[in-house]
Each structure stands twice: as structure tokens, then as C-alpha cells.
Amino acid sequence: MDSLKSIQHIISIKDFNRQQIVDILELAIRFENLRDDRLKGCVLGTLFFEPSTRTRLSFEAAMLQLGGKVLGFADASVSSAKKGESLADGIRVSSSYVDILVLRHPLDGAARLASEHSSVPVINGGDGANQHPTQTFLDLYTITKSHPELLKGEPLKVAMLGDLRYGRTVHSLIRALTHFNVSFRLISPESLKLPDTYIDFLDRENIEYDACQKIDDALEDVDVLYATRIQEERFPDPVEYNRVKKAYHLTPDTLKGVREGFQLLHPLPRIQEISPKVDALPQAAYFGQASNGVPVRKALLSLLLGKI
């Protein structure tokens, strides 16, 4: 675990090399079902300037299960930001009250800025359309639990479905997976294609990928399907949102003929992209994925607080 000693904040998956990612995934296994008092006396500040259910609650659960305490807000309208306080000032002040901070903010780069003004470790709980690194760690954790061969260099084909343009979970996961032997299938409407900057990155790194718009026949050679919600809040143009919002609807029929060990992941919340009829299928991994947020976040909190 020597690779983890230099980590002070968790801001972007780009800050982590392959060894660090592997070590964090192995660390998370140790926190699975673990409850103790290692974080007793420590306080987590949760600054959520944007709505969140899973991320906030799983951070809180992780802290409480390790004996720590939590304070914060889940609604920007109750913070001083409403009065016009800068984020930098807000972070300077709140970091003096707690031992570690988790921040969710609507603007890209907010977490990086926060880490520059905080006196305690900062964890990015999602900054606009940019990064959501703890989601990426729990996505990787979920994938490697079912496909441990990935960590040994075996090949895996991962399909990304839905909003590949604005989806920060997609961007972060693609970047993280390129440390391993992964090829991609990018399935999205034309207007929600993966941005050029990520396509250029895949080209530069010689990562194999293909792209299509329809899901028909696109899953036969895929090991993991990462479906995403079409996010209304990220669309500058509501007309365009209405045009693509129902682009995909996964049913048990869609998953017929998929490979042995196939996993369907989704960062949740889902709206209509996955039928509830899929929930009972063995391929439906998304609720287990959400549960994995707790051991992963327990590991990250303990790491940053020097309690592993």
C-alpha cells in the first residue's frame, strides 16, 4: 500500500496511477462488512451544493459505521453561498470545523479549487460534468468483484450507453479503465456522443473502441454494460433533451444472448432506461453497485484520515 502514502485529496481519477487504483480496490475489500471505531473522534463535513442521495448517504453511512460523526448540508440554499460567499471562503471556514470534507458542486473544477483552500483532506463527490472519482472507484470495485481477471491483465469489453457527452461517471470510468486491458463500445445518440477530448485520449493511448447509436445486436460480445441516465439538468437546450430522453429502454429481451458473467451497471438514479423487469435478472448489478459505495468510501475516508 506504499503507493497510497502520497494521496492527500481525492479530486480526479486522473490523479491516480494503475497501482494506486489497484491498491484502493484491494483496500476496499478489507472494509466490506467491517464496523469498528477507527474513526472515533473524527468529523466528516458534507457540503452538497447539488442534490445527492446515494453519494451523500453512503459517505455518511461509511463514517458512522467506523465510529465517526457527520455534519453538513444537502441543500445549497441553506449555505452562505446563497448570500454570495465565494466557494474558496466557504471551504476555508468549513475545513476549520471538521477533519475531512466531501464536496458536491455544480461547477466543473470546484473540488480542485476546494482542495487548494482546505486545511483538511477534500473528497470530490461530483463537480459539474467533470469528475466523480469515488463513483468511479465503486464502479471499478463492482466490475472487479465479478471480473477479477481484469486486475491480472485479462481483456474485458465494456459498453457505455446513454449520455456519454455530459455523463461525468462515464468520463471518469473510461479514463480509469484505460489502465487495464479494456476495449470499449460507445452507444449513444449522435448529440450525446463521447466528447472529442476523450476520443482523442483513446486514440492516443491506442485503446480499441467502436461507436454506434442502436443497442440492437450491440451486446453479444460485451462483458459489462454501463448504462446512464440522460441528464436533463446538463442540457442547455430542453428541446434537444426531449428529443433524446427516451432513446434507450433496456428490457429482459435486450439482455437475451449476452455473455456468461455479463454485468449491467448503472450509477442510478434510473428514470426509464432500465425496465424494473430487469431487476430480478442475475445480470442486474446496479443495486449491488450502489451498496459497494459504502466499503469503498470507508476505505477512502480511512486512508485520508491515516486510519487504515
Binding site: 466543473d108 473544477g109 479549487l113 459539474g128 467533470n130 469528475q131 477530448t197 482523442d200
Partner: peptide
């Protein structure tokens, strides 16, 4: 590449 929003 912007060091904050990470876009190039």
C-alpha cells in the same frame, strides 16, 4: 488543459 475543469 485547464487544471480545474480538466478540459483540453
Amino acid at each position: 488543459t485547464c487544471a480545474y475543469c480538466e478540459r483540453s
